[in-house]
Amino acid sequence: MSETVLSIRDLKVEFDVPSGRLPAVNGVSLDLRAGELLALVGESGSGKSALTMGLTGLNRGPRTHISGTADYRGTDLVAASRKQLQTIRGADIAVVFQDALAALNPVQRVGKQVAEMIRQHQKISRADALTKAQTLLGDVGIPNPQQSARAYPHQLSGGMRQRVMIAIALANDPGVLIADEPTTALDVTIQAQVLALLKRMQAEHGSAIVLITHDLGVVAEVADRIAVMYAGRIVEVGTRDEVLNSPQHPYTIGLLNSMPRIDGPRPRRLAAIKGSPLSGVKRPDGCAFAARCEFVHDACAERPELAQRTAEPDHLDACFLPAEAKSAALRAGAA
């Protein structure tokens, strides 16, 4: 088992909203292992982005309340001062944002934006940083890096801009790279290229990657491990094969069943999870998914903890139901 770079315990991220305090992340515990690609899956509003922004402190502010711990190689990111976070950000934890056009400064040449990331954390001359930036741009697959470094973001295509963003994020070989839906704004062929690039960079730079996505197709392709989030909590986590092949939580099962499959008979209509996700400030005491769950029973009034409930030591889930009942449901859904 490889070492753990980031150890999150009972992390909560809450936002003040007019109706009260919204628990966007409601007690998450998760270990990120060095060099792995962990996919964080969940629907909109499940707290994926709030979790990762909470880790980097990018959503800190008077209306945000963060508690719990997030241990990055001996530093607790939650308790860290603003100054400490500034030295960690960019050097140890970097983020690839969803919309690269908006995430890049429109009036600065892209080479300079990569070089800025290098110079912020390394003692290096302006010229050397720019040369290094050009090398990085070449590494992420941008043609004519010398020339492209002089381009402004609007002069590059969407895929190229996301490559620039990845070059920026990887400039200092961070231990953790958070990719926040990096392919959502791109068309399908470019998506595949960017994912392949992330996978290659994971190997070359040795960064652990947290890939935030709601696209299970993406997950199946590149993830080493998968964590499924629902209503601010992780409901299931395991290796890719464990989660995709023997999902334990009814929500994961529902997600997988709602995916159209190329093999097998064509369903008349796509299976959907009934009901809608929790959105208000009020959360039930018990299982948050209970209201939508077809297996709901009395035990669900109590909150199920994320724990090992199968024979696999790495495969954790937060559902009281015995595995047999669920695998029957999975077969029924797939048929």
Partner: peptide, 12 residues
């Protein structure tokens, strides 16, 4: 968004 990117880089 690019302001958030700048913060992500570790700028004060």
């Amino acid at each position: 968004d690019f302001v958030r990117t700048a913060q992500m880089k570790g700028l004060d």
